[in-house]
Amino acid sequence: MTDVLARRNFRSLATPECVDAVHSQLDDLWEDAPFVPDMDRMTFATAVIEAAANVVQHAEPESSDPVELGVDICIRQSSLRAKVSAFGAASPAIDDGDPAMPGEDAESGRGLALIRALVTTVTFTRQDGTNTWTLSRDPIGP
């Protein structure tokens, strides 16, 4: 396991505005990890924002407490990884198949397919009322 070179952790009520806050954290993160090529920054940041927006839009609270969004981003020399969590969320409807892009005139439904196209692996876990999507992009290439 190689050393963690840069890390950011974010947690807040899952509101649309917090997606902007996650974006600012990502912009800030690259200053600590200048070795990450532009192409990798662009693809990884897009996937993280899509996953965070997915939580804000679709996570349903498990109890009377509202869902919180958590984003934990970890940069190593050879990999970019983000854990995007929905705390206090009900179990989502899981579709194990590869999500397909919807038709050309659809105005939504591209997020998950886009995430899969942007990162190397996407895994989902559910533990103690928390849904977590782990996105990894590796290796970092020019």
């Binding site: 899509e50 105005e107 997020g111």
Partner: peptide, 16 residues
């Protein structure tokens, strides 16, 4: 500098 799938959906809605 940045657009996600929500933004893309808005452009498609505006096109329609």
């Amino acid at each position: 500098a940045f657009m996600d799938s929500s933004g893309l959906g808005a452009l498609i809605g505006c096109l329609k």
